[in-house]
Design a protein around this nucleic acid. Structure first.
Length: 356
DNA sequence: CAGACGTGGTA
DNA sequence: TTACCAAGTCT
């Protein structure tokens, strides 16, 4: 591709602006590749304001790479609770363990080795290598594609995986070799503060004079991005089964949605269900007695790709035979289990009633 | 490659 | 309310 900008001047304008205007973020106060790695994983598809408190707690709880490598997965997931995309946490720990075991605890300083780690894709590899080690590697995220699509007037669909390579080539071409860290971060910071998806602040832009879209008045038409499809709805009954003070919880499978997280036992519904039907089905499933089923709440939880419509019930259990992925917990133990959004809503409903 | 994979903020 | 988004990666 042909790039019609003055590279040297562009780098100077971008980096100069970044160094003067950059936000004071927690992960910009460390030079530790491990901590920078954590920040990049947390920031995937997640807002800066959301990440800040999680990042602070996380590095305090797991200050060194070895602290995380040795951490119990339930503790780890509990720290990640509410951040979403939970496989990021488990992949991060898998990556950290590999560094501890195979790299002497030193985060690899080259793309080939670092990219081989779980959860480290092309963006994260470039981000950590450039920010932590000052290596001139591309780090192309959504911000960078939006910013460069405007500056270079690139009209490819950024929703297509193939397009990212085009931007990686562009960055490789124009990245500063004197300060690749500020260059990459500057591109992203510009996307976050100035070159925003809607209403870009072009009059405040430090690289306006390099921008082909601004020159042609097309900044509002870029980037080109095909829209996502809408998600599907599912119906569930979520049942809080109590035997005395103990409450029954189940752990989700090790793969897929909310992997290894905990929840109140759930039944997928095909249509409207009555408390009596729930009693029958559960009594049969647990080879015991489940009765006193009562609906206590109803809510909707929207994930990125699907929606759960949940009816929440309470019930009493006697002499239940439970499978290995379930366990009885006290209210205190319940607070230690990692649970995701919909389960949080159910737990809140129970707490309001004084049931847990 | 298309779809799975969370959450909370904003228009 | 609907839709889109925000520093992506894995299968």
């Amino acid at each position: 591709m042909t790039i019609n900008i003055d590279k040297k001047q562009f780098q100077e304008d971008l980096i100069g602006w970044f160094l003067a205007e950059k936000r004071d973020l927690p992960w910009r106060r460390t030079a530790d590749p491990y901590q920078i790695w954590i920040s990049e994983i947390m920031l995937q598809q997640t807002r800066v304001d959301t990440v800040i408190p999680y990042y602070k707690r996380f590095v305090e709880k797991f200050p060194t790479l070895y602290d995380l490598a040795e951490a119990d997965e339930q503790i780890l997931l509990k720290e990640w609770e509410g951040l979403g995309y939970y496989s990021r946490a488990r992949n991060l720990q898998a990556g950290v363990k590999e560094v501890a075991e195979n790299y002497g605890g030193i985060v690899p300083d080259n793309r080939k080795d670092f990219s081989s780690l779980k959860g480290v894709g092309p963006y994260t590899a470039g981000a950590v290598l450039s920010i932590a080690y000052g290596i001139p590697e591309h780090a192309v995220d959504g911000n960078v594609m939006r910013v460069l699509s405007r500056i270079l007037l690139i009209e490819e669909d950024i929703a297509k995986p193939k397009t990212r390579k085009l931007f990686e080539e562009a960055v490789t071409e124009i990245i500063s070799h004197e300060d690749p860290s500020s260059f990459n971060q500057g591109l992203m910071e510009l996307g976050a503060l100035i070159c925003t998806p809607t209403s870009p602040k072009c009059l405040l832009c430090p690289v306006r004079e390099h921008c082909a879209a601004f020159d042609k008045g097309k900044q509002h038409d870029l980037p080109i991005k095909t829209k996502a499809k809408k998600n599907k709805a599912m119906q569930f009954a979520m049942i809080a089964i109590k035997e005395g003070d103990a409450i029954l919880m189940e752990q989700r499978p090790t793969t897929g949605l909310l992997a290894n997280m905990w929840q109140f036992p759930m039944m997928e519904l095909t249509d409207e269900v009555l408390p009596l039907q729930i009693e029958e089905e559960l009594s049969e499933n647990f080879s015991g007695v489940v009765d006193g089923v009562e609906k206590i709440t109803s809510f909707k939880h929207v994930f990125s790709h699907l929606t759960w419509n949940v009816d929440g019930f309470i019930a009493k259990g006697k002499n239940l035979k439970i499978p290995p992925h379930m366990k009885w917990v006290t209210a205190e133990e319940l607070d230690l289990l990692p649970i995701a959004g919909p389960v949080q809503k159910m737990k809140t409903a129970l707490q309001l009633r004084g049931d847990v």
